[in-house]
């Protein structure tokens, strides 16, 4: 029974994973966050250009809890978090599973800088509880996870490693290709890196920066070549949001892909959303980093091929 032997060998990583979850929950509770559970099965999703939702006869399996979590903020909850499964069609690779575990949290009255601080403190708390060692080995390199981490702008790293300015040239296709092939592979490996200020055309749900409307207040966290988290200051303007959703659907239609019905309830409560910021962190990827695992399969009990 290969399957049982494989599962038995994962015990160490599964224990680590459980400790990560426990310490993350403790971290947010201690800071006054309420853990919420929102439905995974949903009649509507947020239209995303490159995320394909799993559609069932009963509705969509959500690719992210965002659509329902923001409703808490509109209703006056100021700090909420959730840990749960997310589904994305046809995503399978060394760092991807079509069903994975996301940690997502929101803060009212704050912007994306607060999320970056949260990430640094969260990792420190998790490390304290799992091993106490801030330096981990990943992909053959030591990474020092202790804060503060380097904070770079997307423009900086693109000018340096891709040789062009993504704010001057609106080119999503080139941006995404170069991010994957030229930028992420050469980001510093000895520390985690926080990338700030994505081009506005690469952030459908983020607020544009008042200082430079060519950028959105979006950040991403990378460590050891792993994309760990993505967050932003939330867009709270329903008109602007509707326009962006329609554009997304338009681009999907042009490529011959399925479009999504607009999430009307979401758009309706968006005007009640206070200034806020939210971020999603992949629990499986964090477990990979702390376990030194090169494949996501090593940190989940059962991969799709095991079923």
């Amino acid at each position: 029974m290969e399957d049982l032997a494989r599962l038995a060998r994962k015990r160490g990583n599964l224990v680590l994973r459980e400790r990560i979850l426990c310490s993350a929950r403790r971290f947010f509770r201690e800071r006054g966050f309420l853990e919420v559970t929102t439905p995974i099965l949903s009649p509507t999703v947020i239209p995303e250009e490159h995320i394909h939702p799993v559609e069932t006869a009963a509705g969509f399996l959500l690719p992210s809890p965002e659509i329902h979590m923001k409703r808490f903020l509109a209703a006056g909850y100021d700090r909420v978090f959730q840990i749960g499964p997310c589904f994305r069609k046809a995503e399978r690779g060394e760092q991807h599973l079509p069903e994975f575990t996301m940690l997502e949290w929101y803060r009212a009255g704050e912007d994306y800088h607060a999320l970056a601080d949260d990430c640094e403190r969260l990792l420190a708390a998790v490390i304290e509880s799992v091993s106490g060692k801030a330096v981990v080995e990943y992909g053959g390199n030591p990474i020092d996870l202790s804060p503060p981490w380097p904070r770079l702008t997307v423009r900086q790293v693109f000018l340096k490693h891709a040789g062009w300015d993504p704010l001057e040239e609106e080119n999503p296709e080139r941006f995404e290709r170069d991010l994957t092939e030229k930028v992420v592979p050469v980001l510093p490996r000895e520390r985690p890196v926080l990338l700030f200020d994505f081009p506005a055309y690469e952030a459908s749900l983020a607020r544009k920066s008042p200082a430079d409307p060519r950028t959105a207040e979006r950040l991403e966290l990378f460590a050891g070549g792993l994309e760990l988290a993505n967050g932003f200051s939330e867009l709270t303007d329903p008109k602007e949001q509707r326009r962006r959703f329609e554009e997304t659907n338009e681009r999907r239609r042009a490529r011959g892909e399925k479009t999504c019905p607009l999430p009307e309830k979401f758009l309706a409560f968006l005007s009640d959303l206070p200034p806020c910021a939210g971020i999603a962190l992949g629990i499986d990827r964090l477990a990979m980093l702390l376990a030194g695992a090169s494949r996501i399969d090593e940190v989940v009990a059962l991969a799709p091929e095991d079923l």
Partner: peptide, 12 residues
């Protein structure tokens, strides 16, 4: 073979 995809970006 490897499947690479930024969360919000295109799959390669």
């Amino acid at each position: 073979f490897s499947f690479v995809k930024p969360g919000k970006g295109q799959a390669l």
